[in-house]
Amino acid sequence: MMPTQSTVQSATCPECEGEIAFQRRPLAGEVVVCVGCSAELEVQTVEPLVLALAPEVEEDWGE
């Protein structure tokens, strides 16, 4: 995704190296989807902003 005027922060997709733009200040643990490769990503750290592939669903996850 190309950064827009409303982008407050951006990072690189670890899967396709595309740009991930955040319109709001990201939170650690936030889940985003790369529009370039559809990978589900999780914000690992916010300072610096680092993304990683989100983990697979675990047994005790749910509603």
């Binding site: 669903v57 047994e59 996850w61 749910g62 509603e63």
Partner: peptide
């Protein structure tokens, strides 16, 4: 069903 789990897993 598993006793613990969601989303139809």
């Amino acid at each position: 069903k598993p006793t613990i789990g969601s989303w139809g897993r």
